[in-house]
């Protein structure tokens, strides 16, 4: 039976970006994106969050008919600065654990765009129109509204706004992180990324034992 890590998340850009990062962190891992259910817990009451976890569990049970599913990656942006990612990640992992699903939560603070400040070389490798986003050595998990901050940081003075960062650029940046082998050379700090990277590597290493 094939061993497959399933990736759930808020939208396909996020899922694709998480797949690239996971491959960069754990080369050789076999990943597949799964679309439904779309949203995990954001803005939802606890009962609804448990229901969503139960829907993910249903998809995993279906997949287990033909594949071994050692792990699920469940993405949701925090929409808050660190350390908000910890409570959100614990909540997602707890709800899925109660369903019998081993899970590593992917909870970027403030949102996944904050992570792109970690690898400025990967970002500028995607589009020559962009400038270095800066933030080297900083705690990027404290950047409020990271998407807008990244968009603004990448825009050259007087630059054409048609070249602005778009959410669909996110997977391209994540892919460059892998291609350029930058994942372990972040130029800034993000506790939410560090948590994800550590937990993913531990989970997959433990799964091999």
């Amino acid at each position: 039976m094939t061993a497959l890590v399933l990736v759930f998340g808020e939208d396909d850009n996020d899922r694709e970006a998480v797949c690239h990062l996971a491959r960069a962190l754990c080369p050789g891992v076999c990943l597949a994106k799964r679309r439904s259910p779309l949203v995990l817990t954001k803005g939802r009451a606890e009962a609804e969050a448990r229901k969503q976890a139960s829907r993910i569990a249903a998809v995993v049970r279906a997949e287990r008919i033909r594949s071994e599913i050692p792990l699920v990656l469940a993405h949701e942006d925090c929409d808050a600065v660190e350390p908000a990612h910890e409570a959100l990640a614990d909540r997602i992992e707890g709800n899925l654990s109660r369903e019998g699903i081993p899970c590593v939560a992917v909870t970027p603070a403030f949102e996944i765009e904050a992570w792109w400040f970690l690898w400025p070389r990967a970002v500028t490798a995607v589009k020559s129109h962009w400038r270095d986003p800066g933030q080297q050595g900083r705690e990027v998990g404290l950047i409020v509204d990271a998407k807008e901050a990244l968009r603004h940081a990448l825009r050259k003075p007087g630059g054409d706004r048609r070249h602005d960062y778009k959410e669909s650029d996110s997977p391209k940046i994540a892919a460059k992180v892998g291609e350029l082998e930058l994942v372990d050379q972040p130029q800034a700090r993000s506790a939410s990324f560090a948590r994800f990277a550590t937990k993913l590597r531990v989970a997959l290493r433990d799964g091999e034992k």
Binding site: R34, R35, A58, A62, E63, R66
Partner: peptide
Amino acid sequence: ATVRAMAAESDLLLGELWFSGCLGGV
């Protein structure tokens, strides 16, 4: 047969299973 088993195991409708990506064709 695999589709039938997946639907039974998950309690999901076929459209939900297909849209999730479990059945391929996405």
